[in-house]
Design a protein around this nucleic acid. Sequence first.
RNA 1: GGCCCUAUCGUCUAACGGUUAGGACGGAGCCUUCUCAAGGCUCAAAUCAGAGUUCGAUUCUCUGUAGGGUCACCA
Length: 434
Amino acid sequence: MSETQKVIVRYPPSPTGMLHMGNARTFLFNYLFAKQNGGQIVFRLEDTDKERSKKEYEDDIIENLKWLGIEPDSLSPIKQSERTEIYKKYLNKLIDEGKAYLSKEEIVESGQRNKVIRFKNPNKKIKFDDLIRGEIEFDTTELKDFVIAKSLNEPIYHLAVVIDDFEMGITHVIRGDDGISNTPRQILIQEAMAMPRPIYAHLPMILASDKTKLSKRKHGEQVSVSYYKEKGYLPEAVINFLAMIGWNPGTDQEIFSIAELIKAFDIKKVQKKGGIFNIEKLRWINKEYIKLQKNNTEEIINQKLKEKFGDRMIHPKLIEIIFERTEVIFDVDMFIESGELDYFFNKPKLDKEKILWKGESKEEAKKHLEKISEISDNKEKIMQYAEQIGKGEALWPLRYALSGREKSPDPFTLIEVLGVEETIKRIQNAIQLL
RNA sequence: GGCCCUAUCGUCUAACGGUUAGGACGGAGCCUUCUCAAGGCUCAAAUCAGAGUUCGAUUCUCUGUAGGGUCACCA
């Protein structure tokens, strides 16, 4: 291809499962590469396997692409299942030219056919230049005369891919590196049909923590994009995270908008080594985005609190407390369900043993609480008093009286949220117990 | 097993052949109002091994080792 030729990449998922994080990353890199070169992205559904392809998976892929906010040029995919006539044409030509043949097969397994179409392997060495890995060479002899179609109407993946890439004018094939070993046989088919060879770029795999390829079967639902959508991850964060597996800008910048990614992305700087999917890092990135979208997030927190505790005024300070503790929106649901926030809305049940600070006597605690109760509307005075008698002695009983929990925000924050009136009630309640 | 690919802190990674091997996540510690969170500061943590090339290798070459991918009438 010439330098001035327009870049055309493709996104060819197979609808045999939900949109997978690795697949989404592959699409992202195709997307970034196409966009930064003013190119096109062809959306093609590789559904030649009639048994495994399902409409629900197709829908899941499209829906989650939309959610991620990166889309191919058209969301209506070209379906291979609707192109059998085209493949048939090429297949016949191949057979006519003696480059493929109808082969009689011995049936060893049930479901096997007695006739398939095999490619006549010229048994040569194939060398290609990978944008990411450099030169790769294979001896194709061991491939034998591989099957390219089950029948004239049922092409196999390798054939369909090569024909489609040619007909759609694909200039760059950017895919996962599990496709490396498919490349020589695809090149063989290309050459048999005198089609130009696209430029290949094989992306390193996304690995699970066991260092093996991320897969649904082995690693569960966490490989699906929809899982992250449901947990309330932000699509921008997911994109950002995915972009940083196997690529980095070479600077210290870690947070990138899509526009910035398009600008900074460089396919030549993509790593060769597979990258482990580190969910801790994803959570951190998500938190960064949550901070960027503070107002939005606080409104969501507000809504969730209202749903749970009734449609009342929610103190802004309480929302802030939760906001601080939120990395992913799902955390908010966790807080709410765990009952950790209940004391903000209802009187806490106190365990009288826990009211006392280390080594503090009941009498002392009672005295401190009485005093604090009198000055509970004045933060400075409480602090002054606490410093006088020892911070722990004053602040712990106070905080525990208000929250009934060993862990909570500081007492001043609690007083602010609860209000002075409720504060006094709770302090009195604790004093009763002592 | 054949073929192919890969190899820097636990993880993601940076480093014209010359750096105290840098950053981030996570971890540890300290500070900030008792506990928690958030924030700030500090610390620990890596060039797979062995040869070779070179004045000098994380970087180049080879061998070994380890890990991964792929070997369908799936895609």
